[in-house]
């Protein structure tokens, strides 16, 4: 059978095109078009609220890479990633291993409890946590003082030294349930006879884990790390509602920086959407770069 001409193929598939159209329009409007436009906006000197916009070439980029606050926020985003992802991966794995025991009668209950913060609105978590960590009789400080772990209240969110670790802790708490679910899914793929065979061979404890189970779940681990790493770079709602980047910009990550330069400027200065877009593009490219790197790593490992 020889191949049909392209026009005939397209005509035969007319229903297919009709079916992909609605979703394509939406994605085009709210994902593809914005990606393209943010490149263009980044070349403008534009406040966003007037029609006046001046084309200034790469000047916004030049200004961004020379801005100390930009690099501080950039680096802080990665500190946030490296500080939270390994903890989530390891802790999530340990919990999943325990909850994967059929014998543990309360496992479904524990799973529900640990997953609960995941479904809770992130902005609300941020706001509630400003109460929980309040230095004025907040429950966290009350607990620490009543158990004599500290003698004076700690200003968790008001001190530049403690603010980032606190926000990172809350982030881990909020999303650990997802990591646990990923790991549970991975552990479920280990065939039962692998366990049984291992037991007969006398592989117990850490040897069973290192030599038999880890190699099986490793491909999952790489996907989990990728998803988690990108997730940890998107933390706008939590930080905006907990600290808005403060105190003194000490918890300002990249997304807060973009939001601040675009919408929440100091009194007397105009918002600068063009500049914020340049910062956003720079950031988007950096995230893409990491994703691609990890993707390559994933392919390499899978081949082995």
């Amino acid at each position: 059978m020889h191949k049909k001409p392209l026009s005939k193929q397209i005509y035969d598939a007319r229903w297919c095109y009709l079916f992909v159209l609605p979703c394509s329009i939406l994605t085009g409007m709210f994902v593809i078009y914005p990606i393209g436009m943010s490149w263009y906006f980044s070349l403008l000197d534009w406040s966003g609220f007037t029609k006046e916009a001046k084309f200034i070439g790469l000047q916004n980029y030049y200004e961004a890479v020379n801005d100390e606050f930009f690099w501080d926020a950039f680096i802080r985003s990665f500190i946030f990633m490296f500080g939270t992802v390994p903890i989530k991966i390891v802790l999530g794995f340990i919990i999943a291993v325990f909850l994967n025991n059929q014998v543990l009668k309360l496992a479904p209950f524990f799973r529900t409890v640990i997953f609960m913060p995941v479904v809770t609105a992130i902005a609300i978590i941020g706001i509630v946590m400003t109460f929980v960590f309040s230095p004025f009789n907040g429950p966290a400080n009350k607990f620490l003082m009543s158990t004599n772990l500290t003698s004076a209240p700690i200003d968790f969110l008001g001190n530049p030294d403690t603010v980032l670790p606190t926000v990172m802790g809350v982030y881990v708490w909020k999303w650990l349930g997802i990591t646990m679910m990923y790991w549970l899914a991975a552990l479920q793929t280990v065939p039962q006879d692998v366990y049984d065979a291992a037991k007969i061979d006398g592989a117990e404890g850490y040897r069973l884990w290192i030599h038999i189970i880890l190699p099986i779940v490793l491909p999952f681990a790489i996907v989990i790390i990728l998803v988690e790493a990108v997730g940890a770079l998107n933390v706008f709602p939590l930080i905006e509602t907990m600290t808005a980047g403060g105190p003194f910009f000490s918890s300002e990550v990249m997304e807060i920086y973009i939001f601040r330069t675009a919408f929440v400027t100091d009194s007397g200065t105009m918002p600068r959407l063009g500049y914020a877009c340049a910062a956003g593009v720079f950031w988007g490219v950096a995230v893409l770069f990491i994703t691609v790197l990890q993707g390559l790593w994933m392919r390499k490992t899978r081949r082995i």
């Binding site: 709210f30 078009y33 914005p34 990606i35 998107n234 706008f236 956003g280 995230v287």
Partner: peptide, 23 residues
């Protein structure tokens, strides 16, 4: 079509928000 879709998986929301607002 699939290629375009897959490539948008990891686009951060902060990256598209300003053009969406403008649109």
């Amino acid at each position: 079509l699939i290629g375009i879709l897959i490539s948008t998986i990891f686009i951060p929301q902060g990256y598209t928000i300003i053009p969406v607002f403008d649109l």
